[in-house]
Amino acid sequence: MTGALLHVQGLKVEFKVYEGVLKVLNGVQMVVHEGERMGLVGEAGCGKTTTMKCVLRILPSPPGKITAGQILFHGRDVLKMTFHQVQRVRGRGIAMIFQDPTAALNPVFTIGDQLMSVIKYGSRDSLGAREVRSRAVAVLHEVQLPDPERILTNYPIQLSGGMRQRVCIAMALSTEPELLIADEPTTSLDVTIQDQILRLLNALVERRSTSVIFITHSLGVVREMADRVYVMYAGSIIESAAKEELFSNPLHPYTQGLMRAVPKLTGGGIAEGIPGRIPDYLNPPAGCRFQPRCPHAWARCVNEVPTLHEVGQGHEVACFRFQEQ
């Protein structure tokens, strides 16, 4: 293996609410290698975004609280860093693209103001005004926006949704980060625009060999965007494998259920979804959190918590069916 760029180990997060304590993250394990495109799939409320907020140290606290675990970026624990060190990681180490490009851009400043301030303060060396501007134009050109000079003077409202997301990508990449976190960047876009943005992102990260964490709820999108896929359910990673392996040979009952539930272009009706709903984080089920919805659950699933276990070349599953004992 090449060096691990980001290594999340046993991350646990709790939220305090009126009824008690929500045990949201339950020991998240993940590794992102240098130059790797990692896909993180899971349904709403499974903790994908919470995990990323911990990585960037933007988890609102209170009510959130990290109770255990480490987040190693280049081998250094982000959770133990001072505010100043975290600032440096955020700017040049890790950048983020959000789901809603409209909310991510400030409506009262021009694209130029926002993009150039990111370049000015995020860049490794101090730059003159002219330098900043030419870099801004270059990066807008790189995300294939027509007429970058004009776009610098535009306000976000003057651009379409797809163009705004391109601007956000330009901003995220302008400081040349080592790791790019893309949180559902195409969910609010139409399918033809999504196609364009995915192609663009793929081309950009390949050219710069940036590592990517691509968060999505769509199995189809992750298949286009990732080399390695992590499947998340109710606060922990339940399966991880290389893309081809995962799609041809899903092992965890949840992953299988998810694959079945996706409507197929080949037709044949919609399979029954997964029965039940995601667990109550106040009183999560004992043992495996998927056990109440699992068709294969047996006594051990209630008594013990399964951990990720390698079952094949780089294919890990957190399920007792694949651990002989």
Partner: peptide
């Protein structure tokens, strides 16, 4: 051709890659 799909069978059903452009 822009729809992301989950299996090679579906991939085969899509019309030959039409590169989407414009908005």
């Amino acid at each position: 051709s822009s729809i992301p799909v989950v299996s090679p069978e579906e991939e085969a059903l899509k019309p030959e890659k039409v590169v989407s452009q414009g908005e």
